[in-house]
Write a protein that binds this DNA or RNA. Structure first.
Lengths: 337, 337
DNA sequence: ATGCTCAATGGAACCGGTTCCATAATGGGC
DNA sequence: GCCCATTATGGAACCGGTTCCATTGAGCAT
């Protein structure tokens, strides 16, 4: 493990001082070409590589970026992370991955990351930091960017979830549906509640715009997993006056919805239309009509914003809003009866 | 970014030496209870947290584990990584993620990781290290474990791909199929060719065991993406004497196969049976008959093996072979004509 | 009382880079 | 020739922990 060649060895072999070797290593112009070549030649022949640990200590930089994601419970996160990876891989930073699955984990983890000073910047994905976290992050001066969540103190990449949800619901309305239910995420979950709130608002706005009264019985909320959605959909479809169409908070839940329809012998979309949200990989496979948000691109932009922030810490927080897109596939159709 | 409280501050406030503070921080027993309590109290009131950079330098340990994965091109990797994360998250190590997409990237990346000494251990997933890499890793004494690839110098978690592939092919044979084609990965790809070779062997063994002659025209190989598989399957299905069943190297390719069948108006499984390999998430969604390998568990075991290796570097390389399991869903059926 | 052993402690040296200040050399202007 | 400014360089101090050796004190055995 121990690298036996140090900067002092290089200096001795090259007949220069350690300061000169350091200057060469860091492309400092105050080295003559002759001296620079001599040092580089010794570095090569000794196969010297500077110790990152020593560099971290003396420079006060870790050259690593922390990425905090709910890796297990939010499938859209994989695509976002791919975008992040593609950006960070071209930078000089390493990517340290932190998984967080619930609000309790989140509170301890972010504080721990900050305290240990193991990253130069932080990218938080699909997770809303607590006010306590925000205070610590700001005090610690750690450049931070949020993707798919919001806080005014940080740069962020989001989509207009109100517009996206309105789009989804309007699509169903345009197909002639008036009995449109909405299956939501849990809006009281402190983990990340802005998209939850916004998508519901969009749904309500579309109904209102079309003069369709809101029916309390057509609203359900659950967790992001398929089973919960399957169960809740069965409830909806077994109402005396069931909905003919369902807008679902996420594609993952929409898969459970499709399963529920099959459970009850309903044909989708002939008997029952379903529209999801996200356009994750599985949506394509299942020909799910959905609202696409550019998951990969959100990661790319998030990564870029963070690198910029780390380069220019005085930058004001920026907000990039990505558009959503209606993707019509095979789970929505005009009202048939 | 700069943590203003150092070990010297704590020592001064507690009226002890820095060695004593360090002993308290590291649970060294050579500290009296009275002194220990005094130091801990000061640590608490000053909100002191030791600098990781300084610790790394003085201890010669980074407290980080590197995980090298082809994150974009191999969907089974996500599930394996989840297993790894679940283990590393319970350890004292941070997870540094490295993405590698082809053999060229691999060669530079592994060397770079080793040279920079930024991880205490390495977990390589679905990627076969080059002999050059192996030499450097061994010389550098970096504990390393491989998942879903093989090298005798390292501990590894693999599945018996010969048996798995034989199982898949035997399933088709038991359904009455004799015209069974095989769609492989590229066996000349140095990235990770053992599974490619082994699954083909398993396919051949099953044919041989059933006395079915091998037909050269029933073999195709391509890349791991759906489009390649779609194209190659169309070739197979348009032969004068097309296969009635297809064993596919991976579920991802199998999705492309299903698309090709649909392209040609074939019903799966009535007209054409398809069996994949991996049991990734999408297999469940598409009711794909497949060979399940415990992707998550392979990550868990890989992580555990690595932690053990780091604790006991003299441990001999170990090999954990996971079993495969036939998962019959809706894409295979008895020969109908 | 003396000597030995062990526990507890302080702090200098060290880890391996970076940085900054002192110094020397060179070139240009007067 | 002298002075000033600039460039290039060496190396001590520093980053903030850990470790190891020297020292002290206490307890026990002779």
């Amino acid at each position: 493990m121990k690298n036996s060649v140090t900067i002092r060895d290089v200096a001795k072999h090259a007949g220069v001082g350690v300061g000169t070797v350091s200057r060469v290593l860091n492309n400092n112009p105050s080295v003559s070409d002759l001296t620079r070549q001599k040092v580089l030649s010794v570095i090569d022949s000794l196969n010297f590589s500077p110790s990152q640990a020593a560099r971290r200590l003396s420079r006060g930089k870790t050259m690593a970026v922390g990425v905090v994601v709910p890796f297990f419970t939010n499938p859209s996160v994989v695509k976002r992370l791919q975008g992040v990876i593609s950006v960070i891989a071209t930078s000089q930073y390493d990517l340290v991955l932190f998984d967080v699955e619930n609000a309790e984990d989140r509170d301890g983890l972010l504080k721990n990351i900050i305290q240990r000073e193991i990253v130069d910047g932080l990218l938080i994905i699909s997770l809303k930091p607590s006010e306590n976290d925000v205070t610590e992050i700001v005090e610690a001066n750690v450049p931070t960017v949020i993707v798919d969540a919001e806080h005014p103190g940080f740069s962020r990449v989001i989509v207009d979830n109100v517009a996206g949800a309105r789009q989804a619901t309007e699509h169903l309305i345009q197909l002639g549906h008036h009995q449109i239910a909405y299956l939501n995420d849990d809006p009281t979950n402190p983990f990340n509640n802005a998209p939850t709130h916004d998508r519901y608002q969009g749904y309500l706005q579309a109904l209102e715009g079309a003069g369709i009264p809101v029916r309390a019985g057509y609203y359900r909320q659950g967790t992001l997993d398929r089973e919960s959605a399957r169960h809740l959909t069965r409830e909806l479809l077994q109402l005396p006056d069931p909905p003919t169409a369902l807008f679902v908070y996420s594609d993952t839940q929409a898969i459970g919805v499709l399963e529920a329809a099959r459970d009850l012998g309903l044909n989708v979309p002939e008997d029952f239309s379903v529209i999801g949200y996200d356009d994750i990989e599985a949506a394509k496979l299942l020909h799910l009509t959905t609202i696409r948000q550019s998951l990969y691109e959100s990661g790319v932009i998030g990564g870029q914003l963070l690198l910029e922030q780390m380069l220019e810490p005085s930058l004001e927080p920026d907000e990039v809003v990505l558009e959503t897109e209606l993707i019509v596939r095979g789970t929505t159709a005009p009202l048939s009866s």
